[in-house]
């Protein structure tokens, strides 16, 4: 039995966490409720607790655009980008965190700099590059330009810094090459970081809208977010269908999160070797 103070503390903690969780979840709950309403009640309360279950909205939303194809495109794009970001970014981060070479900090600043240029002004030049490569309307255009990211490199670098360098030294003494250290020491020890990068890379790719729209011309190459735009038209938003489509589109991202966050298990003491 826990002492009474601890139990009261836990209870208070639960109260605070639950209130915050409700606030966090509110817009998502609203999306679910709206997706199940008859259109006529779009603007009427209640906001959060579903009182109607118009599953037909999901059927209608699914039929409003070639969603199976959009799903497939998004899946191909998101998986390829996630795999690329995890591997290639980790590789680059290893160089920045552990290797010594001239101009390292300058190069790293340049990498960070790529995050600081507003995307909108590079849109046209970027399209011209894709066109020059002959990649307009292909998966290459959807995947390759985003297969590495400064964000992922930076995140990996910060995690590699927390891995005790005694571990690489030991591996080097055992005859491991530098790339071997990366593969056998750094990568296996950065599970939680890789999970975080994977979550963000997947989400970024899955939610991306403008770039895929600009570099594709045929409807067959579009990802799911472009499909959702059908419900948010020039003259009005069809809220019930938009929210049904949105829920359909969000489920994979949530599943990826729930699976990946299992990596964050309390008490993993991989790096406890040092302590």
């Amino acid at each position: 039995m826990m002492p009474i103070q601890v139990r009261l503390g836990r209870l208070a903690l639960h109260l605070v966490l639950a209130a915050g969780a409700l606030l966090s979840a509110l817009p998502f709950l609203w999306a679910i409720t709206t997706s199940l309403k008859p259109a006529r009640l779009t603007y009427t309360p209640p906001l959060v607790i579903p009182t109607h279950f118009q599953w037909q909205n999901y059927v209608d939303a699914w039929r409003a655009a070639p969603f199976p194809r959009f799903y497939l495109n998004s899946a191909i794009m998101a998986v390829a980008i996630t795999a690329g970001q995890v591997l290639l970014s980790a590789l680059a981060a290893y160089a920045f965190a552990r290797l010594r070479f001239p101009g390292r900090d300058l190069l790293f600043l340049a990498v960070l700099g790529t995050m600081m240029v507003p995307f909108h002004v590079t849109l046209i030049p970027n399209y011209l590059v894709i066109r020059w490569l002959g990649w307009v309307d292909t998966y290459y255009a959807l995947v390759v330009p985003r297969i590495v990211g400064a964000f992922s490199i930076f995140l990996f670098r910060q995690f590699f810094l927390t891995i005790p360098s005694e571990l690489d030294d030991a591996a080097r003494i055992d005859g491991c090459s530098r790339l071997g250290v990366f593969w056998r020491v750094m990568l296996p020890l950065s599970g939680p970081a890789a999970a975080a990068v994977a979550i963000f890379a997947f989400l970024f790719a899955w939610n991306d809208f403008l770039w895929p729209l600009i570099v594709t011309n045929s409807v067959d190459m579009r990802p799911i977010q472009v499909g959702l735009a059908v419900f948010q038209g020039r003259y009005g938003t069809r809220w019930t269908l938009l929210m049904a489509g949105t829920i359909i589109a969000t489920v994979p991202a949530l599943v990826v999160y729930i699976v990946a966050q299992r990596r964050f298990i309390e008490g993993v003491t991989l790096t406890g070797l040092k302590g």
């Binding site: 849109l123 403008l210 729209l213 600009i214 011309n217 735009a229 059908v230 948010q232 038209g233 020039r234």
Partner: peptide, 12 residues
């Protein structure tokens, strides 16, 4: 006919 979402039609 190819549908392009509203504000992005201009960018396209």
């Amino acid at each position: 006919p190819v549908f392009i979402p509203n504000p992005e039609l201009l960018s396209k």
